[in-house]
């Protein structure tokens, strides 16, 4: 058997998504963003909607999301992605429009834009990476930082008397009449990756079916910000994040 025999499409078990660009990723090794990017790229490819999809990038670690998936993108101001997406979708109703946002972007500075886009039932998909920290600016406290969790701006651990409580924004969004699908996923294991990908596809499909807003939260890790190895981060996430942000569908109007 030669190398040529081995490099054979029949033997292919893994490949780069076709819509992922050749740009080297700036994400830290072990970060969840890369996996979520790849899943979105795969879904766009499988649905054959590259020419109809417009992404809105946030401010935060995913600020350069537009460098990695080969579609049209707009880069929003911090927290304003749902406002941009609202106009893009209303002015081009035949397009698939999604936002890609982190916890600081979606649940702190952009809370109003997020809630009102969801409450209007904008036919967009919101992909929300929650790693409970501000990664881009160097590991400060996020609205979703866990109680007692240490960050650069709560070095003694998040104190609820001083900083309030971890914001379960997806639970809040599920309460709104405008959302049709709110789900919490993760991407640390093959099984969870498969489920997360299904959720992404469903969110895209809902947006074109005119059902309202879909929100997919990815409970994620930030091994750099958490100061742990990627492996330990995954374990820490399962033990500490999942009890506060339990996985699963929070709302699915299809299942009513």
């Amino acid at each position: 058997m030669t190398t040529k025999d081995i490099i054979n499409p029949a033997n292919l078990v893994y490949s780069k998504a076709k819509l992922m660009t050749e740009n080297p990723m700036h994400y830290c090794p072990g970060c969840s963003h890369g996996v979520v990017h790849k899943l979105i790229a795969e879904v766009i490819e499988e649905m054959d909607i590259q020419d109809k999809t417009i992404g809105v990038a946030p401010v935060g670690c995913a600020v350069f999301a537009y460098n990695y998936i080969d579609i049209d993108w707009q880069e929003a101001a911090h927290g304003r992605a749902p406002a941009l997406a609202t106009a893009i979708k209303r002015l081009q109703p035949d397009k698939f429009v999604f936002t890609y946002q982190g916890d600081g972007d979606l649940a702190a500075i952009g809370t109003a834009e997020t809630i009102h886009a969801c409450n209007r039932g904008e036919n967009i998909a919101i992909f929300f990476v929650n790693n409970a920290i501000y990664g881009m600016t160097g590991g400060q406290m996020a609205p979703t930082t866990l109680e007692g969790m240490k960050t650069a701006t709560c070095p003694m651990g998040r104190n609820t008397e001083l900083n309030g409580y971890p914001l379960k924004i997806s639970n809040l969004l599920a309460e709104l009449d405008g959302t049709c699908y709110v789900t919490r996923q993760s991407v640390q294991k093959m099984a969870s990756i498969v489920r997360a990908k299904k959720a992404i596809r469903k969110a895209f499909e809902n947006s074109m079916a005119g059902k309202g807003t879909s929100v997919v939260e990815f409970v994620s890790t930030c091994n750099s910000g958490w100061k742990m190895s990627p492996h330990d981060s995954n374990k820490w996430m399962e033990e500490n994040m999942f009890p506060v942000y339990p996985l699963g569908d929070l709302k699915d109007t299809e299942k009513k």
Binding site: A76, T86, I88
Partner: peptide, 26 residues
Amino acid sequence: MVVLQAESEVAAINMVYGGAGCGKKV
């Protein structure tokens, strides 16, 4: 023509940003 009452002036101008980015007259 799309006419939308936004939740704030901040949201309204960012809707304009999104619409203008599509080449629309907003």
